[in-house]
Computed example of a mutant assay.
Amino acid sequence: MLAFHSDAHSLALPPGHRFPQSKYRLLREHFEREPGLLRMAAAPAATEGELALAHTPDYVDAVIHGHLGAAQQREIGFPWSPSMAARSRHSVGASIAAARAALQEGVAANMAGGTHHAYADKGSGYCVFNDVAVAARLMQAEWARTRRSLLRILVIDLDVHQGNGTAAIFRDDDTVFTFSMHGARNFPFRKEASDLDVELPDGRGDADYLAALDRALAEVWQRCEPGLAFYLAGADPHEADRLGRLKLTYDGLAERDRRVLAALRERRVPVALSMAGGYGHDLATTVAVQVNTLNLAAESWASWVSERGTG
């Protein structure tokens, strides 16, 4: 399975900053030691034109050329630097590349991404550009140009925080179905309306979470027939996450991933994954969750390839 990384472009963060950017390097280094079914590649940078498919030109220009104001940088949570702009563009490029690969091979991944708090005209909550929104719009444009038909998109957002920026960008777009299952009392405290929102009380564990997921997916399939899915497989519902407030175990998160991937494969819906959030007290725990997500995705990819070969 193809997986695209962008951690070569680091953030110039002050000492003690809460964002755990080293997890992306640790994730890549794990798969360099134990690649399994993963084929890793460096992500290309998204172009200004590609970014403008989901973001206003003024905002794109401000990020790339360093015109963000102090208040905008505070809302994002990162100080501007050339490396911040480069990292943001390559992270979007990773989701674009993963989406293209998924349409060819069934499953692919961005080893970062899931920056779902970014709106069309601003960033927020450690999210500069909305990688899924840009990739979704670009895949639709490329599909229409080559296939002369409409590509419907499904966003399955299982980060513990609501995908407010994604919901806002696609609010009036009936070609993209947005589903977010998240903590009711967690960031962002002002939620946007997704096509389907499932809010969970603090402290929910494996059984309650998986039951809610099954009910939600059943509703999704009744309301949506996608040609491509984006799956934000956040590690932050884990019980040891600093910001999550839910109580999923390692095994519970693995079962979450299995159910999502199996449901998509059963319906022959290609999927591009992104790792989204994860803020473990012990960063190794977050990395272990995301390693398992990528291994399960790679197993699903292998099934896609096998089924295609025998179909």
Rank of each mutant, 00 (worst) to 15 (best):
P20V: 00
S6H: 12
F187A: 05
R259F: 04
L150E: 14
H161T: 04
G16R: 11
N292D: 13
N110Y: 06
G49T: 05
A144T: 11
V155F: 01
R145N: 10
A284S: 15
S6T: 09
T146G: 03
S83N: 14
A41E: 15
A184S: 14
P237G: 02
C127F: 06
A276D: 10
R18Q: 13
F187P: 04
V269D: 02
A98H: 07
S91F: 03
A167M: 03
L150Y: 00
A101V: 02
Y119E: 12
Q162Y: 02
R190P: 00
R265Q: 14
V107I: 13
R258Q: 13
H5Q: 11
V198E: 00
A120V: 08
H30M: 07
A284P: 09
S180C: 11
V160P: 00
L232V: 07
E32H: 03
F19Q: 03
H182M: 03
A3E: 08
H281G: 12
M111F: 04
S88A: 15
A207M: 06
L264I: 13
D121R: 09
Y24R: 01
S91P: 00
D214R: 15
G165P: 00
A144S: 13
R215D: 15
A3G: 12
G16Y: 10
R185A: 15
T166R: 04
L11N: 10
L210W: 05
V176A: 09
A207S: 12
R18P: 15
I153A: 02
S124G: 12
L154D: 11
F19E: 01
L232C: 07
R268S: 14
F129E: 03
L210I: 11
D7G: 06
G183V: 08
N186L: 13
P79T: 02
T115Y: 05
G165T: 03
S88Y: 01
A62E: 03
R265H: 14
R147E: 15
L228K: 07
W301E: 05
A193M: 11
A263N: 14
E75K: 13
G244N: 10
T286L: 01
I169T: 01
L243Y: 11
E239K: 07
V134F: 05
W221Q: 11
A135Q: 00
A109W: 06
L210G: 10
H30Q: 11
R242S: 14
S180I: 05
